[in-house]
Each structure stands twice: as C-alpha cells, then as structure tokens.
Design a protein around this nucleic acid. Structure first.
Length: 687
DNA sequence: TCGAGATGTCATACC
DNA sequence: GCGGTATGACATCTC
C-alpha cells in the first residue's frame, strides 16, 4: 500500500537526519560536556524540566536562544521556554544542537517542528518539515498531498512527460484507491517475489512541480533574457541553470518507511539479468502492499540493489526487462535504474544496523555527488540550507547508485570501481523533467541548484521526454516520444538486454564496460551506438545553440555599450569644434585689427608670412592669390593654440600700414590679401 | 498557407 | 583508431 500504511505501523519509527554543519569532533566534546554539566552556563527549563547547556551552542543554533542569551552574563542564566515548547519537541532539538542529528518519530515530528519554529532553530529548515510532516500525517493521505500540490494542472497536454507523470501517478493513486492491496494477484506475486524491496512507489512521489511551475521557476533566472530565448535557455542553460533541473527525480521517491521504522530511501533498482523482472515488479509491490516483514529489512537493502527500477513498465517476456507502457516516470523517479553499488549497500547495512531492529537509522552517507550537486547551485541559499537539504536528500536517497544501470551486470568489485569513478552517474539516471519541487529539499535549495552537466546526464535521450519539459513546451513531446518509442521498439526488435535509457545515460567507461560484459550482436551494437551517438549529439546541439544565444545576447549588450561610447565621443567632438570656431573667430578679429591698425611694408608682410603658419592671417596677407589661402582655411588647422603661438603677429603689427583694406571691404587687387578669414569661413559649419 | 522558432539529426572537423 | 564535442546544414514540427 502506501507509505501511509507504513506510518501506521505500531512500532515507533525513528529517523535521524544528520547535518554536517557542525564539526563532529567539537560536537561530541560539547555534548559530552553538556551531559556532564561541564562548562554549562545556561539552564533551560521546559515543562518543569531543566536542561543544562552551553549558551553559545544554543545561541548558535537558535534565534530564540541567541536573543535570550545575548548580553546576558553570568553562569546562572536560566531560560524558561514558552509553554508552547514541550519536552517532546525540545529534547530532540537540543540533541540536534549538540549532535547535528535530529532523532524524531512520527509522533513527535510535529512537536519538534513547532518547537523549532518557536525557537527559530537553524539547520532545520522548512523544507524538512514541509516534506516530513505530511509523511507522518496520517490524517492526510499521500495521495491527497500529491494531488493537491502536483496534479492541480493535470497535464493540460498529455504529451508532456511531466504531465504524463502527474497523470500517471494520479491514475495510479486512483487505481490504488479502488483496489484492495491484496486484490491484485500481481501485487501478491510481487510481494512474495521480492519482499525486500523498498516500499517506495510512484504514488509516494512528493509534490512534483508542474511544467508551468518549472517554467516559471526557470524564468526567474532568465528574466533579463529576451523572452523568446528563455525557453531555450531553460532547456540548455546548464551553465547557469539547471539545477532547476534538479528536478531530480529523487524527489520522486521520498521516504519510505518500513514497518520496522526505517526510512527507506529511494532505492535503486538494477536490471540484473536474473531478477530483473522481479525487481521491476518489486518497487510497486512493496509500495502497494506496504508490508515488509521487519526481519527482512536487512536483506532488503542488498536485494534492492539488484532490482531494476522500472516501475510503470511491464515485463516483456521476450526482453526480460520491462518496456515502458506508461511514462517512465516512476522508473526514473526511483533513483537510478542502476544497481546499487555493493559497497554502498553494505555500508548502508552497517549504518542501518542491518539487523533491521529498532534504533535510529542514522543516515549519514558520504556521497560527494549529492553534496556537489547540492552545493553547485543555490549559491544564494544559505550553506545551512544546502547542507540540510543535502543530508536530508542523502538520508532519503542514501544510495547514489554510483554505477547506475551501466553496472547492472557487473560484479561487486567492478561496481565499486565504477561507483568511485562515476559519482554522478546516479544523477544521470534521474529524470530532469521534474522541477525542484519534486524534491522538497532541493526545491528549497532553490533555483540555483544545478545538476552537473556531465556527459550523458544532460537530457533527452535517456528520457526523451526531458527535453520537452526543459523546453517548457509540451508540444514537442510528440517527436521525442516518437523517437523514444521508436528506440524502444528497435530495442525490442534487436532484443536489447537492457533499457534504452541506459545507453545514453551511462558514462563512457560504464558503457564500454557493459558492452564488454554483454555479448551483443552486430545489430544490437549498431543500435546501441547509434542511440548513444544521437543522444550525445542532441545534447551537444543544445549546448551549441545555447552558446550561440548567449553570444548573441552578449554581443547585443556590447553593441549597446559601444553606442553609448559613440554618443559620448560625438558630443565631445561637437564641443571641440565649437571651441575651435570661437578660437578662429577671435584670431580673425585680432588679425583684422592688426592689419587695419598697423602699417606694414610688403617686405614686412612677406617676412611675416615666411614665419607664420598658414593659419596666421599675416601669411594670408602675403598670399598673391586668394584661392590657396581659402583652401588653407578650409582645412583643419593643426592646433589652434600652436598656430597662434607660431604666428608672430605682435611684432610686425606696428609696421602694418593703415591703408590695408578692411576685411569687410572688397578685396584689394593690389595686395590680393584682403580677405582675412571671416567667422563664417572658420565656423564649424563651414568646416 | 507562410514564416519564424525550436529541436533532432547528420556530417564533418577537431581534440 | 575511437569516442566525445562543436558546429553548420538540413528536416520536421509547432505556433
């Protein structure tokens, strides 16, 4: 059945989220000191119970305490918390403050949330509770939650994968509502077949964002861009975007709680030859039956790793693996199609105590991939949020499925190697169609979160629907869907022993490794390579186009900037021209004055002309014919100041003859030099 | 019906 | 030599 059923388990479910915000060593010391009441300088009273603690720790973790202890001195500080704060809620929070681990049960999660809210506890962001509380809220079915958030806009177009996902899920929910959990022989069979499966199912998908949500979301990033490019930028803008794409289907498999109270992360399924079919069925099985024997949890984890993640598909006898009969959302949802790295599985088993017994399940995965993924984007988010999200995500999907589907056929050692080499592979398996809304943690992380644009993971081929989603347009789903269906059909024809989605989603090493392990026919090899090539090229084309668009946008900005500079230079030029005109005008006036007042002999004038620049009116006076001098004035003088300085008009002025004609008078044929440059001639306009 | 935009694919070059 | 990537060109689809 659903997780809700699991939540109904009479046993107490205890979960732990660990934050890496704190240094574990320091925290351990502090916690030890607190328990021994060493250096404790504050007493917190909650419901008549007192807790000794360090004010610095509390202040660091809680706004409330920060405010209360600020400016408070002395060792005897006693803080009585509001009555709204209960021991039930405060106790785990205090533990969290000192251990970075939050132990909670479904009974106290709400209380913890309330207390954390009242006390303003850091590191326990809204995302945690928004996601967790509904899971524990037996009053609301998961279906209700999903429908409310996700499927409001139930696929305006069925073309959209996302839309398909929603609809598919909803239908599934509905179908499930009408079906008794034991009424389906298939389910029974599945349950019997692989009881160790995780209990996640597509209906457990958390709030998946609608395509419109995604688009809106992404648009916030590209608002400065030309609207017509936004879609494309969204689709291709991995550089800056796409952790929008972080849609990570991780979200699709939130927390699954087994009867023994462990949070079951989205367990990956592999397409192991032997139990591929079983595995395919399994994920639905448990999720629908919700009935996992407690003592099987330990064995569940390793077994899970061998299960193919292909919920929503049918098992086709001829292929041995399921082909999608419905949008492969669930399949993609559930973490990667790949197998769980054996090492990871064991590690998790250790973490879980693998006995399946009680005790907090302390998920503290050390996967760098998720960390990187989470940190890569969302720079605008607090590191705390990121870390919390990261840890929560890890907690729910502790297994990054390192080697993904590609290693489904590998032995454990190989898987380990591949897992090390391909930390992001599991991400590649994730369907990017969903928005961050799918993952409450990553959604809260925000828009900036980006999936690494490593090869293969980018988009469509593994899930051809993806591009349609990324493009924000449902319409193109047809072609992609056709392509996908064609590929699937071809895969069926050539009896491809693994899902088509794996071909392009695998890393090169994984891919080659898989090919080595598989004995494929020539036809199969051709098909596989063809699919992979087209997928890679499709992604490359998207990147290429995005770069082009970015370049265009950049050039447009550059053009705008250059236009501004040009405008400034033009204004400066006009200003200089005006200045030059004024200078020439004053020079002309001076020249005429000198010529009219001074009495110069022709020898003197010739002498002046010899040592004066062409701009100097004195030289004009000596010019036999007026035309050359006019032409000189039509040219730009070198520099007005220099011309003036070089013009020795002062000395000879005293020798100028008074009978020199006035500039305004008709030119004298005798001198031929009566036309001193007028203002008009030297005006900028004339120039 | 036409054109623009989006996208997938192919061919080719380059690394 | 193989595989990945970049990119121009083309085809197809949608609006």
């Amino acid at each position: 059945m659903s997780q809700a059923m699991n939540f109904e388990s009479p046993r107490t479910s205890v979960f732990t989220f660990q934050s890496s915000v704190h240094s574990s060593h320091v925290l351990r010391c502090l916690d030890e000191q607190r328990r021994k009441d060493i250096l404790c300088d504050v007493t917190v009273i909650v419901e008549n119970k007192s807790y000794r603690a360090h004010r610095s720790v509390l202040a660091a973790c809680s706004d409330y305490f920060h405010n209360r202890v600020t400016n408070q001195v002395g060792q005897g500080l006693v803080i009585t918390l509001p009555e709204e704060v209960t021991m039930e809620g405060f106790d785990p929070l205090l533990e969290f403050a000192y251990s970075a681990k939050l132990l909670f049960t479904k009974e106290n999660i709400v209380e913890i949330h309330n207390c954390a809210t009242i006390l303003g506890f850091h590191n326990l962001e809204k995302a945690c509770f928004d996601f967790l509380i509904p899971k524990f809220d037996s009053g609301k079915s998961i279906n209700e939650i999903q429908k409310k958030v996700c499927c409001k806009n139930k696929c305006s177009k069925q073309k959209s994968l996302h839309a398909k996902s929603c609809c598919y899920l909803e239908e599934d929910d509905q179908a499930e509502d009408t079906n008794d959990e034991t009424s389906s022989p298939v389910l029974k069979n599945r349950s019997n077949g692989l009881p160790s499966q995780n209990s996640t199912s597509e209906k457990d998908l958390p709030e998946a964002c609608s395509p419109s949500c995604l688009e809106k979301h992404a648009q916030t990033h590209y608002s400065p861009l030309c609207p017509k490019y936004r879609k494309f930028q969204m689709a291709c803008g991995k550089d800056r975007c796409s952790l929008d794409d972080c849609s990570l289907q991780m979200s699709a498999n939130p927390i699954a709680v087994t009867n023994d109270g462990y949070a079951s992360p989205c367990l990956p399924h592999t397409s192991d030859k032997n139990d591929r079919s079983e595995g395919n069925q399994c994920d639905q099985t448990l999720s629908e039956t919700g009935n996992v024997p407690e003592n099987e949890w330990a064995s569940c984890m390793p077994a899970t790793s061998k299960n193919s993640l292909t919920t929503g598909r049918e098992v086709t006898p001829e292929l041995g693996y399921d082909q999608p009969t419905a949008p492969p959302v669930a399949a993609l949802d559930c973490c990667p199609v790949g197998p769980v790295d054996t090492a990871v599985t064991l590690e998790r088993d250790e973490i879980l105590g693998c006995g399946g017994d009680e005790g907090p399940a302390d998920f503290n995965p050390s996967d760098s991939a998720l960390s990187e993924m989470v940190q890569e984007g969302g720079a605008d988010r607090s590191s705390v949020e990121r870390e919390v999200a990261e840890h929560l995500a890890k907690g729910f999907w502790p297994d990054p499925c390192p080697s993904r589907t590609g290693t489904l056929l590998l032995d454990s050692e190989e898987q380990q190697d591949l897992g090390k080499a391909a930390d992001f592979h599991w991400l590649k398996q994730l369907d990017l169609t969903a928005s961050t809304g799918d993952c409450p943690f990553l959604r809260e992380l925000g828009d900036g979160v980006q999936l690494p644009e490593s090869e293969g993971m980018s988009q469509p081929e593994k899930s051809p629907y993806v591009s349609s989603i990324n493009s924000g347009d449902d319409s193109d789903c047809d072609t992609e869907g056709d392509s996908e269906s064609y590929n699937n059909e071809r895969a069926r024809e050539v009896h491809l022993p693994f899902p088509v989605e794996q071909i392009s989603s695998m890393s090169r090493n994984d891919f080659q490794h898989m090919l080595r392990l598989q004995t494929l026919t020539r036809e199969q090899l051709d098909f596989v390579h063809d699919v992979r090539r087209r997928s890679k090229n499709r992604i490359a084309a998207q990147r290429c186009r995005k770069r082009k668009l970015d370049c265009i946008v950049s050039l447009e900005g550059e053009i705008h900037q250059l236009k501004g500079e040009k405008e400034k230079l033009m204004q400066e030029r006009d200003k200089l021209k005006r200045c030059k005109g004024e200078t020439l005008q004053s020079l002309s006036t001076l020249c005429h004055k000198v010529c009219s007042e001074a009495t110069l002999t022709p020898d003197q004038l010739e002498f002046l002309a010899q040592y004066s620049s062409p701009d100097c009116p004195a030289s004009v006076l000596m010019t036999p014919t007026p035309s050359p001098s006019l032409s000189l004035h039509d040219q730009d003088p070198p520099i007005a100041g220099i011309s003036l300085d070089s013009c020795p008009t002062e000395e000879p002025t005293t020798h100028l003859t008074p009978q020199l004609p006035h500039p305004t008078a008709p030119p004298s044929t005798h001198h031929g030099t009566t036309h001193c440059p007028t203002t008009e001639q030297n005006s900028p306009t004339s120039t």
